[in-house]
């Protein structure tokens, strides 16, 4: 049985999640992958404010394929999360609540997840056509010059994920 959750997540909802739980996410989230993360990181280090407020938000690591005519979005599965590890503790310390990607995270990220009571979800890599069916709205937000790597806001309905690292630091990949 999957746990239905609404985005943005509430802190008490996050606390109840255990590594390995199946969840269905509904609500709004932001997309960002390698290039957008690098820009966020550089902006904060230069003392600039970010174009999005990450507090209590969820970031999905994705760079979708283009949408065919009459489609909301093209295939949009998760990309490997470890490439965002360098930038993630900073975003978690700024209040980011949840991330969706695939694969392992390093110890620094796991510590930052525990420190901030956050959660890391895994979506199924390579299930991009299927996942695109749970994205009901797609709006561009910033960094449009980055193309598929630009930041968008998705509205998702029953997006299937697994709790990969829970707020206590339990890691489904280390079991």
């Amino acid at each position: 049985m999957s746990i239905k959750l609404t985005l943005p997540l509430k802190k008490e909802d996050i606390k109840k999640l255990k590594a390995g739980d199946s969840v269905l996410l509904s609500g709004e989230l932001y997309t960002a992958r390698d290039a957008a993360h690098k820009r966020f990181y550089d902006m904060v280090n230069n003392g600039e404010s970010l174009p999005i407020n990450v507090e209590n938000e969820t970031i999905y690591y994705v760079g979708p394929a283009p949408a065919k005519p009459n489609f909301v979005i093209g295939p949009a599965g998760p990309t490997s999360s470890y490439r965002m590890d360098k930038y993630t503790p900073m975003l978690l310390d700024m209040g980011l609540s949840a991330m969706i990607g695939k694969g392992e995270r390093n110890d620094e990220v796991i510590k930052a997840i525990v420190r901030n009571g956050a959660v890391y979800f895994a979506a199924i890599g390579g299930a991009a056509a299927l996942i695109s069916k749970s994205i009901v709205k797609d709006e561009p937000v910033c960094f449009e010059d980055l193309g598929t790597e630009s930041v968008h806001k998705y509205t998702v309905k029953d997006f299937p994920c697994i709790v990969a690292i829970d707020s206590m630091g339990n890691d489904v990949y280390k079991r």
Partner: peptide, 25 residues
């Protein structure tokens, strides 16, 4: 089982709708 079922469903959708199997083409 759930993951493999998702992958088989995904590949069926991709073929029927002529959309990429994965966003990383």
């Amino acid at each position: 089982k759930a993951v493999l079922t998702q992958l088989l469903t995904n590949n069926k959708i991709a073929r029927e709708e002529q959309i990429p199997i994965c966003q990383d083409t």
